[in-house]
Design a protein around this nucleic acid. Structure first.
Lengths: 143, 143
DNA sequence: TATTGTTATACTCTATAACTATA
DNA sequence: TATAGTTATAGAGTATAACAATA
């Protein structure tokens, strides 16, 4: 998976981290693509599931994705019958996003796929190593 | 550093891995940018240092970067006086890339910066944890 | 016919601007 | 004046095509 790079570089922790993460992302994206989704879709779906009803602007804010992208993502998810736009009860500018039953079911399937893909990816590590790896990532993410 | 995502997602190892790697890359790129370089430049410099003289096509192959990009990168590195194109002794189509003294000096400085940046990034982990983290990444990269 | 370096072109992603209708 | 959603536009990064010189 790693390119034919000069040895000092391939042994660098930063380079390894980037390589491993890139490969993990690619694997995850490939698994999602088979279900017809892009990682962005999952971000939106998870956020709607956690905070519904939620207006589009909040989605853009919390995912760090730009508003025009959200419009497209919501269009696509709505076209698939997973979510639905509703007029906001008090603010006539805003649209509330609701998760539909089919969206709940789909999200469940996506989560199963994610879990399976991740387990496979981490399988070279023992259970203990996986826990240590997760703990280290958590520490690094909080720095 | 992590966005305000639904909790189940932020605790996912894959999501953590992507977040941590993205942050590490950003930090590294910022440090490089202060020296006036892009990560691609370093890839080329390291490769030239390890295998000089080397023709451009080999660089493209080994870095997994497309030829037109290599042309630009080599132009820039040559303009800075770090490397130099020479005619290939036998193949009149090809150009050999040589590392100049200034390139050696610059590469040394870049490596120091990388080392410092990485050490800082890994500082939330103990020496033992850093070794385990590196070992886990190595195992995952070989899968 | 294939390959080297190069230029030109296309495509995707990401980011910004601008518009309308509200607030 | 500011904000929500949308459409349109611009830019960076990446990938492909095509070309002249040479193998």
């Amino acid at each position: 998976m790693i390119l034919n790079m000069p040895n000092p570089l391939t042994q660098n922790t930063g380079f390894l981290l980037a390589s491993v993460a890139a490969h993990a992302s690619k694997t995850y994206e490939a698994a999602l693509a088979e279900l017809g989704f892009h990682p962005h879709h999952i971000g939106v779906l998870e956020l709607v599931a956690a905070q519904q009803p939620i207006v589009q602007s909040r989605i853009a804010e919390q995912l760090g994705i730009f508003k025009p992208v959200i419009v497209t993502l919501v269009n696509e998810l709505e076209a698939k019958g997973l979510i639905k736009r509703h007029p906001h009860p008090t603010d006539k500018r805003a649209l509330e996003i609701h998760l539909l039953p089919k969206g709940i079911k789909t999200l469940d399937k996506i989560r199963q796929t994610s879990t399976t893909t991740l387990a496979q990816f981490l399988s070279p590590l023992s259970k203990t190593e996986q826990q240590q790896f997760h703990a280290s990532l958590t520490k690094l993410s909080k720095a």
